[in-house]
């Protein structure tokens, strides 16, 4: 894929447009800076069709900027790529016709009703019989009876459903969802994710950015981006396995308030070489290290302490990401 990028662009574009091509997004060396601040640097990624691709990273890591470059809203300063087989630099117009982009902030018209918003979208995309299409979308969203309500008056969860409904109404091939579930309650989040899985099963490709770890685990594949750099990419299990982290859990035994004791223990552990991360989970501590031997050695003196139970554990995605981020921060400074 990378070799096709060099040299003649025409045959490359021709190949990418074959219907059997299984790649929805393929970008290479993307770079974007605002002023002197590099927001995305040398980003290379590939998303297969019909996948739910999780795009993870802390705030300000360049997720939104990347998504905007994918749908032609921002022009990359360097790099190349295709989205649905169209060049992201020169064929933004074609991309727009086939991509549904759900912005981070609610961006439908607050002073239009649910129905009017959907009809507007349907007309812009040239959906036949826009009124009927809007009515069908309302039914699919479970918004019957709210068609005349102004979009600005809907609750957070309903706004997000409406925004998703507007995105899928023109039947796009690719959905770009930018933190769609921020500020939405757990029930609505769960329904949202089951809807996304249904859409993927129907053949849609979904790229969704989030910083919720439980959502990351619902994706087929994930990419983790921090400070503009892509740090890890692949199915969740692979990303965890590739991290090389070893994790041990320690729990305080016996009744009583173990909080202060565990907090003191956490501080003690953090100071030890060989231990890279200590995270409290209730009465337990999650201890991770990059080298298994070094971690064992560091923990040895503590194992003898009374009232503590040590257990080997698997690192969570969160452990992996926090580790990736701290490593990347070390590299930057």
């Amino acid at each position: 894929m990378a070799s096709a990028a060099d040299g003649a662009p025409q045959p490359e574009a021709g190949i990418a447009r074959e219907p059997e091509a299984d790649i929805a997004i393929e970008v290479e060396g993307l770079r974007k800076q605002f002023g002197t601040h590099v927001v995305v640097d040398d980003l290379t990624m590939r998303v297969r069709r019909r996948q739910i691709y999780g795009f993870l990273g802390p705030n300000g890591s360049g997720k939104t900027t990347t998504i905007r470059m994918l749908c032609g809203l921002l022009t990359p300063d360097a790099g190349r790529g295709t989205c649905l087989g169209y060049d992201i630099r020169t064929e933004a117009r074609r991309i727009r016709a086939k991509v549904g982009y759900m912005t981070q902030k609610f961006s439908l018209y607050a002073d239009l009703s649910v129905r009017e918003n959907l009809e507007f979208v349907a007309r812009l995309y040239g959906v036949p019989r826009p009124e009927a299409a809007a009515a069908a979308a309302i039914a699919r969203l479970g918004l019957e009876g709210r068609g005349k309500q102004l979009a600005g008056e809907l609750s957070g969860g309903w706004k997000q459903r409406l925004a998703l409904g507007a995105c899928i109404l023109p039947q796009p091939e690719l959905l770009l969802l930018d933190e769609p579930t921020a500020g939405v309650d757990p029930q609505a989040r769960r329904e949202f994710w089951s809807e996304i899985h249904t859409l993927a099963a129907e053949g849609l490709t979904v790229l969704v950015s989030t910083h919720y770890m439980d959502e990351a685990e619902r994706c087929h594949e994930i990419a983790y981006i921090a400070y503009g750099h892509l740090l890890a990419q692949g199915p969740v299990a692979d990303v965890i396995a590739a991290s090389g982290l070893t994790t041990v859990t320690v729990e305080a035994m016996g009744a009583g308030d173990s909080g202060p004791a565990m907090a003191a223990l956490a501080r003690e552990l953090e100071a030890r070489p060989g231990i890279d991360m200590v995270a409290p989970f209730g009465t337990r501590l999650h201890i991770s290290g990059r080298g298994p031997q070094a971690l064992d050695a560091a923990l040895a003196p503590f194992r003898a302490r009374p009232g503590l139970v040590f257990r080997a554990d698997a690192p969570t995605l969160e452990d992996v990401f926090i580790d990736l981020m701290s490593r990347s921060k070390d590299n930057m400074t």
Binding site: C71, G72, L73, R93, R96, A97, V99, Y101, T103, K105, F106, S107, L108, Y109, A110, V121, L124, Y125, G126
Partner: peptide, 14 residues
Amino acid sequence: ERGTMESLLSMPIN
């Protein structure tokens, strides 16, 4: 200012 422009620009209208 209302944030609707980003959405509008991502749709096929010139």
